[in-house]
Design a protein around this nucleic acid. Structure first.
Length: 445
RNA sequence: GCCCUGGUAGUAUAGUCAGGCCCAGUAUGCUCGGCUGUCACCCGAGCGAUCCCGGGUUCGAAUCCCGGCCAGGGCGCCA
């Protein structure tokens, strides 16, 4: 339909007659010359119109009008960009209503709420555009890295029949004559896939019906998950740090321009990331005078303080109290020689194995961007842990049953897409990092 | 769910504490006109606001009080 050339290619093919297609960013009309800044996904270029072409010179053009311009790129020592485009003809494909409801030129950036109401236009604002290009680079890097390392992508269901894990509130939806729920996690499904396909990953939305009202929470987020067999927590922590570093490197390389626009200097964390046990971190906080006891979760303030103590770098917090993590987190086995040795070396106390589980969080720039565990693959132990959590194992038959027919030891983690985008782009509100955020009040657009 | 702050042209803001000088100022946008190859062009004129909604106090409310809705931030909740 359109034989068009992208602007960045036009700049490289000076002299040839070609057609550009895009949006009018702005016009600068003088008496004897007119300039039109044309924009497409590859950048922008100044289109020049001389008065001898009367039809073009008087053509009515407004911001965000969609046009095609036929002409040729020429080198220019007057144009700041060095290259401009001499127009022979312009076709207006679609006019834009005026004035625009948000300031996409960012002279005076509109409020987030206003921009979200007109997200389709806000995407054209350079900084918003940059955020999602960076997010896309992270996503692509995640997918490519794992695909390239033998992981199979799978798709979990989003509608589930029962609350899979307890804890967070689920959204319930009518499902014919039954009640169903929006999945809060692909947890069970990735485990079921891993115990057959060995190494799997997924990028999937999840829903939490919590009435949270904070700059770091949404009711609908996207998770990047992996699960793999014959692995423990340390195995997948290794995968996580390598995946994360790859993602950051790719973002740094592929979206250097966008990061620069946002004023971001991306420091790639060094491998391997530091490992700190939960027990150590409690000690560190207590040494700073924080009133926190072993077994407590960190408050926001304590999480920030801990980051200051450890440094901005990415690090792992591992060996969490069993009470703090899900029932499926694998406890240490003191009878096992390797585990006993680890516990002895780390805690000088093998009995710690009764208190902590093989679960970890990954903190990066002070935000918890990922968490994972080694899972329990023995149905009997699972039932025991469910009882330990004060739950009834009979209600989890569908879960424990999945591991009755030869489930290898396995482990996995998940990264929050919006959270990591926040960290990388330096945004302080997660809504900036979600194209169409769903929060306590927002359901549109 | 709690606490703090806010809601004024399309957008972003001033004015609110100390009610009347505000039928609401500024910037940008938009419309029109002018104009040295401009580049956030410039210059001039104009357009555009039931001052979030409802109630109250008062001679008089954008301004004070009450309720509601919404937004931003802090916290809580978030296996």
């Amino acid at each position: 339909m359109f034989d068009r050339t992208y602007i960045e290619d036009a700049k490289a093919s000076v002299g040839q007659t070609i057609t550009l297609a895009g949006w009018v960013s702005r016009t600068r009309d003088l008496k004897k010359i007119r300039f039109i800044v044309l924009r497409d996904k590859t950048g922008d270029i100044q289109v020049v119109v001389k008065p001898d072409n009367e039809q073009l010179f008087n053509l009515d053009l407004g911001r965000e009008d969609v046009i095609t311009v036929t002409g040729r790129a020429v080198e220019s020592n007057v144009a700041k960009a060095g290259v401009e485009f001499q127009a022979d003809s312009i076709e207006v494909i679609n006019k834009s209503a005026q004035p625009l409801p948000v300031d996409i030129m960012e002279n005076k950036k509109s409020d987030l709420d206003t921009r979200l109401n007109y997200r389709f236009l806000d995407f054209r604002a350079p900084t918003t555009n940059a955020i999602f290009r960076i997010q896309n680079a992270l996503l692509t890097a995640f997918r490519n890295y794992l695909s390239g390392n033998g992981y199979m992508e799978f798709q979990p269901p989003c509608i589930i029949g029962s609350a899979s894990e307890g804890g967070a509130d689920l959204f319930s939806i009518p499902y014919f004559e039954k009640m169903a729920f929006l999945a809060q996690s692909p947890q069970l499904y990735k485990q079921m896939c891993a115990i057959s396909f060995e190494k799997v990953f997924t990028i999937t939305p999840i829903w939490r019906a919590e009435k949270f009202n904070t700059p770091t929470h949404l009711n609908e987020v996207r998770q990047m998950d992996i699960e793999q067999v014959f692995s423990d927590d340390e195995t997948v922590m290794g995968v996580l740090e390598n995946t994360l570093v790859h993602m950051l490197k790719e973002a740094k390389e592929k979206t250097a321009e966008q990061l620069k626009l946002l004023g971001r200097e991306l420091d790639i964390p060094e491998l391997p990331f530091r490992r700190i046990t939960y027990t150590e971190s409690i000690q560190m906080l207590q040494d700073e005078g924080e009133s926190i006891l072993w077994g407590d979760d960190f408050t926001k303030t304590q999480e920030k303080l801990l980051t200051e103590l450890v440094g901005k770098e990415a690090f792992f917090l591992k060996d969490w109290p069993g009470a703090q993590k899900a029932f499926y987190a694998m406890p240490y086995n003191k009878e096992n020689e390797v585990d006993a040795k680890y516990l002895e070396e780390t805690y000088g106390d093998v009995e710690m194995g009764d208190k902590v589980v093989r679960a970890f969080d990954c903190l990066y720039s002070g935000i918890e961007i990922s968490s994972g565990t080694m899972r329990i693959h023995m149905p009997e132990l699972l039932r025991e842990r469910i009882r330990y959590k004060g739950l009834n194992p009979d209600n989890f038959e569908y879960y424990t049953g999945a591991f009755a027919y030869g489930a290898p030891p396995h482990a996995g983690w998940s990264i929050g897409l919006e959270r990591i985008t926040m960290t990388v782009t330096g945004m302080s509100n997660i809504r900036e990092c979600c194209m169409f955020p769903r929060d306590r009040d927002r359901l549109v657009p």
